[in-house]
C-alpha cells in the first residue's frame, strides 16, 4: 500500500531534475542577443547653424584676399540684371522677383548693404536689409518665433541668442536648402523577427 502511494515521488524528482537542467541551460528564456546599433554621428545633433556667417566683406580668390571696394571702386555699376563678371562665378541669384544686385548691395560703397533710400547698412547688420521686404517674418524673428534661438529662454538667467537671417538662408538663394535626414529608428530587431512586416514597410526603398 505505501509503496503504491509513494511511487509518484520518483516521477516528481525526475520532473525536478528536468526543470533544473532547463533553467540552467535557459531552454524557455529569451535568448535574443541585443543588437548593437551604430552610433549617431555628431553632425546629426550639432548646434551649429546650416550656414557659416561671413563677418567681413571679403572675397578669397586665387590665394588672395580681396575687399569688395578693391575692385568695385574702379568698376562702373552694372545697370543690367544678373550681369556677373568672372569674379563671382559661384553666385546664382534665385531670390524671387529680386533679381538685381544693387537692390541689396550699396551702389557707392559695395562693402555695405543698402536700404530702399540708398542709405548704407553695415555689413554685419544685414537683417536690416532683409526687413525692408520681409516685414512679417522680421516681426516674428524679433519676437523670437522665427529662426533659430539658442541658450536661455529666461532673460533673468542669460541672453537668448538669435541667429541672423544669413545663418540659415543664403541671401542669393534664400529658400532653405533640403538636407539629408538623420537616421531613423533602427528596425533591425523588427527586420529580424518580423521579416514580413519590414519588407512591406521598406518596399519603397
Amino acid at each position: 500500500m505505501r509503496t503504491d502511494s509513494t511511487n509518484y515521488m520518483w516521477w516528481m524528482s525526475g520532473v525536478f531534475v528536468v526543470l533544473t537542467l532547463s533553467f540552467m541551460f535557459n531552454v524557455w528564456g529569451d535568448k535574443r542577443d541585443i543588437i548593437q546599433h551604430p552610433l549617431t554621428e555628431e553632425k546629426h545633433f550639432t548646434k551649429q547653424p546650416v550656414r557659416e556667417v561671413k563677418l567681413e566683406p571679403t572675397l578669397y580668390q586665387d590665394g588672395y584676399m580681396y575687399r569688395c571696394n578693391d575692385c568695385h571702386k574702379n568698376i562702373e555699376p552694372s545697370t543690367v540684371q544678373k550681369s556677373f563678371f568672372s569674379a563671382h562665378p559661384d553666385i546664382v541669384l534665385e531670390h524671387g522677383a529680386n533679381n538685381y544686385c544693387l537692390t541689396c548691395h550699396n551702389v557707392t560703397n559695395r562693402e555695405t548693404f543698402t536700404d530702399l533710400n540708398h542709405n548704407e547698412i553695415p555689413f554685419t547688420k544685414s537683417h536690416q536689409t532683409c526687413l525692408q521686404c520681409h516685414g512679417p517674418i522680421y516681426r516674428d524673428w524679433e519676437k523670437g518665433v522665427h529662426g533659430r534661438m539658442n541658450d536661455f529662454w529666461d532673460s533673468s538667467k542669460g541672453e537668448i541668442r538669435k541667429l541672423s537671417c544669413v545663418a540659415c538662408h543664403d541671401p542669393h538663394q534664400p529658400k532653405f536648402k533640403p538636407m539629408k535626414p538623420a537616421p531613423g529608428p533602427n528596425i533591425q530587431n523588427l527586420r529580424k523577427y518580423l521579416q514580413d512586416l519590414t519588407t512591406e514597410e521598406h518596399s519603397h526603398e
Binding site: F45, T46, K47, P49, V50, G144, V145, H146, G147, R148, M149, N150, D151, F152, W153, D154, S156, K157, G158, I160, L163, C168, F176, M179
Partner: peptide
Amino acid sequence: REGKLPACLEACPTGARIFGN
C-alpha cells in the same frame, strides 16, 4: 529649470521649435 532652452530646440536646424513660460 535653470533658464536654458531644451536640447531638441537648440538642435533644430529650421527653428521650428519655440519654448517658454
